[in-house]
Simulated scan of single mutants.
Amino acid sequence: MKFVVIRKADPDTEAGVMPTEQLVTDMLRYNEEMIKAGVMLDGMGLQPSVKGARVRFNGGRPTVIDGPFTEAKELVAGFSIIQVKSREEAIEWVKRWPPIDGGGNVEIEIRQVYEAEDFGAEFTPEMRKHEQWLRDAAEQRAAGKD
């Protein structure tokens, strides 16, 4: 099972306050633990919403809304993608989050990722094959092998 671990934004992350050396050290140690355990697939911090945009569709027409966005607690400051055996295992990994982050006051959301088998028979073998081709092509492009 794959999960996205979402570190919610706070006033500091939205202000672009960079993490302390100690927090970076602790996060690297935490991520290394997950990588060594074969759990972590990817992860990144996100820049403040002032540098972002939203595209909202109404009647199929896009409207671009530039950041910043007002509700920091509803925004994402970073994420990790992990692969574990259960929701409970994902929760156990998140409980190990470095306690100095946000002065000990952060909110982490855990969301399971849809995988091909979740879609049932409607996701035909041809669709599965095409989806795998897309994933492989994206990985190759990211690795500079296109």
Rank of each mutant, 00 (worst) to 15 (best):
K2N: 08
K2G: 00
K2A: 00
K2F: 02
F3Q: 00
F3A: 03
V5C: 03
I6V: 15
I6H: 08
A9I: 04
P11H: 03
T13V: 01
A15E: 08
A15F: 06
A15Y: 04
A15W: 07
G16S: 11
V17P: 09
E21R: 11
Q22E: 15
Q22N: 13
L23A: 05
L23G: 02
T25S: 12
D26H: 07
D26F: 05
M27T: 03
L28Y: 02
L28W: 03
N31P: 04
N31G: 14
N31M: 13
E33Y: 01
M34P: 03
M34L: 14
K36P: 01
K36R: 15
V39G: 01
M40F: 12
L41P: 00
G43P: 02
G43Y: 03
G43Q: 03
G43V: 05
M44E: 14
Q47G: 14
P48L: 07
S49H: 03
R56I: 15
G59C: 10
G60Y: 07
P62F: 12
T63L: 08
T63A: 11
V64Q: 02
G67Y: 09
G67F: 09
P68G: 09
P68I: 05
P68T: 05
F69L: 06
T70V: 13
T70I: 13
E74S: 14
V76K: 07
A77S: 15
A77N: 05
F79I: 09
S80M: 13
S80G: 10
I81R: 02
I82L: 05
Q83G: 00
E89T: 01
A90N: 02
E92Q: 15
V94C: 14
K95R: 15
R96K: 15
P98M: 02
I100K: 05
G102L: 00
G102K: 01
G102H: 01
G103I: 05
G104R: 02
N105P: 00
N105D: 13
N105E: 12
N105W: 00
V106S: 05
V106F: 04
I108Y: 00
Q112S: 09
Q112A: 14
Y114A: 12
E115H: 04
A116G: 02
E117G: 06
D118M: 10
D118N: 15
F123P: 01
F123V: 03
F123C: 03
F123D: 04
F123R: 06
P125E: 03
M127W: 08
R128N: 09
R128I: 12
K129D: 08
H130L: 14
H130T: 13
E131I: 05
Q132V: 08
W133N: 10
R135D: 07
R135H: 09
A137H: 10
A137N: 10
A138L: 12
E139W: 10
Q140D: 15
R141E: 14
R141F: 12
A142W: 11
A143V: 04
K145Y: 01
D146P: 08
D146E: 08
D146N: 08
